[in-house]
């Protein structure tokens, strides 16, 4: 049995008086693919954003490869130095719903940016790496294009390449296909599936339940301020045990044919 890459314990987040989630315990093993489902507003994005500390978690511990990230303050919450944050985020990549590509840089420039600025890789070398990453998502021919010329699906594949360029141990996806035309969803899911086949460790927030079923090694259903139900895709999606999960899935099946 190997050690978890990521361990959350007693993890929680509050915005003022709004408690989004609390007491979340989660072990992510190498190669795990975890799909996170839940109603809108159930805290899926917030949980993901607390894992790479784009939001500062209010309570609990975050460990990467068995090492605690951040220092506990006297009040009990965690404090993160700028250096720790930069180190953490290189190890935990993120892909956003809205792509968030840098519009003033070419496609290759977007992918090379982290290597150049964060890792101090020489420009030429970084661009070579960028083109190689773009090859993996099938967009090497777009290297010199600006993002404004790409379709939504292409933009998201570039965003994935940008995250991959930092060679992260874990990839976080926050509804990567929700901003896309239905016709473009497939090409992005295809890239994510390919990463799954390579054995990448990933956490994916999605509303594509069919994809989650085939993709995930484990499903988390978020509700009532925490992990409401979890298990294998068969357990959670085919035989949900708890009422809110059942209701959520029934809602999703309503217009299936």
């Amino acid at each position: 049995m190997s050690a978890p890459v990521l361990r959350l314990s007693g993890f929680g987040k509050q915005f003022g008086s709004l408690r989004v989630f609390s007491d979340v315990d989660l072990d992510v093993m190498p190669g795990d693919r975890i799909a996170i489902l839940g109603a809108s507003g159930s805290g899926k994005s917030t949980l993901l954003r607390c894992i790479n500390v784009l939001e500062t978690p209010s309570e609990g511990r975050l460990e990467l490869d068995g090492e605690l990230v951040g220092q506990p303050s006297r009040a009990g919450d965690m404090r993160f130095s700028e250096r720790e944050l930069c180190a953490l985020r290189q190890r935990v990549g993120m892909v956003f719903q809205q792509f968030n590509l840098f519009p003033h840089m070419t496609v290759a420039g977007n992918v090379a940016e982290g290597l150049k600025t964060v890792r101090s890789v020489k420009s030429q070398k970084a661009l070579e790496r960028a083109v190689a990453e773009l090859q993996r998502v099938g967009l090497a021919d777009k290297a010199d294009t600006y993002p404004s010329r790409l379709s939504g699906g292409q933009k998201q594949r570039v965003a994935i390449a940008r995250a991959l360029a930092m060679d992260p141990e874990i990839l976080l996806f926050d509804e990567p296909t929700s901003a896309l035309d239905p016709a473009l969803v497939g090409e992005v899911l295809g890239v994510i599936e390919q990463l799954a086949n390579e054995g990448r460790t990933m956490l994916l927030v999605t509303h594509e339940i069919g994809f989650a079923y085939h993709f995930a090694t484990r499903i988390l259903y978020l509700a009532e301020g925490g992990i409401y139900e979890s298990g294998t895709p068969d357990e959670v999606l085919k035989n949900p045990k708890r009422p809110l999960t059942q209701q959520f899935l029934a809602e999703h099946r309503r217009f299936q044919f």
């Binding site: 784009l54 944050l85 180190a87 990549g93 956003f96 968030n100 940016e113 982290g114 600025t117 930092m166």
Partner: peptide
Amino acid sequence: EAARAIGMS
């Protein structure tokens, strides 16, 4: 967020 998420300060 995108810049911070690839480890930029």
